[in-house]
């Protein structure tokens, strides 16, 4: 835990709103990676992310610096997502294909879905495939590859043994590779 982080936390606890805003900006990517992977309902996702940060704020005083702050925030985001799914009687693996998100993303970025089908944008192709695999796999992939968390940290966030994290991660990557290879030539990947 670096000193800068401790100082930021102390400033937030002292009621500094600007410090909290910077804190949110720093960790909103992490929170959105978890919530957006776990929750498919677009309308509720941002509210959940907002609730996560309010919960983080309310409990920041009880953070004991025993783990990384990112692991602690990720844990809150994961728990909030699981609570949402439970409340709405959904399971983590109820993750229908949400290509609509990708389509929305393309539109936001200024290109149309038609342009996309003609393009060979591997990132978007992969994004579509990630949305089709179980949410649990998608979340683990994000935490490992984007947030650079270790197996142990992911296990702590998702309350599962390190071995299970490793096995899910391997299965997810294998699944993605096979699906992409089945659709596209090896050279296109």
């Amino acid at each position: 835990m670096n000193d800068e982080c401790r100082v930021t936390i102390q400033m937030i606890l002292a009621g500094n709103k600007d410090a909290f805003k910077s804190f949110v900006e720093e960790y909103q990517r992490l929170v959105s990676h978890i919530v957006f992977k776990m929750v498919t309902n677009r309308a509720d996702r941002e509210d959940i992310c907002q609730d996560v940060f309010i919960k983080v704020y309310e409990n920041l005083g009880s953070f004991r610096f025993e783990s990384k702050i990112s692991t602690w925030i990720a844990q809150i985001a994961y728990n909030a997502s699981v609570s949402y799914l439970r409340k709405n009687k959904l399971t983590i693996n109820d993750n229908p294909a949400i290509e609509a998100d990708v389509v929305q993303y393309i539109s936001d970025g200024g290109c149309t879905p038609a342009d996309y089908t003609e393009s060979r944008d591997t990132s978007l192709r992969l994004a579509i495939e990630i949305d089709r695999i179980p949410a649990l796999y998608g979340t683990i992939l994000s935490l490992y590859h984007l947030e650079e968390m270790s197996y142990a940290e992911i296990g702590q966030v998702m309350r599962m043994p390190e071995g299970t994290v490793k096995s899910y991660l391997f299965r997810a990557r294998k699944l993605l590779k096979e699906r992409l290879l089945a659709k596209y030539q090896r050279e296109e990947l």
Partner: peptide, 11 residues
């Protein structure tokens, strides 16, 4: 695949 996974598609 690893290279692509590093690219943040980021909703």
């Amino acid at each position: 695949l690893y290279k692509e996974l590093k690219d943040d598609f980021g909703y």
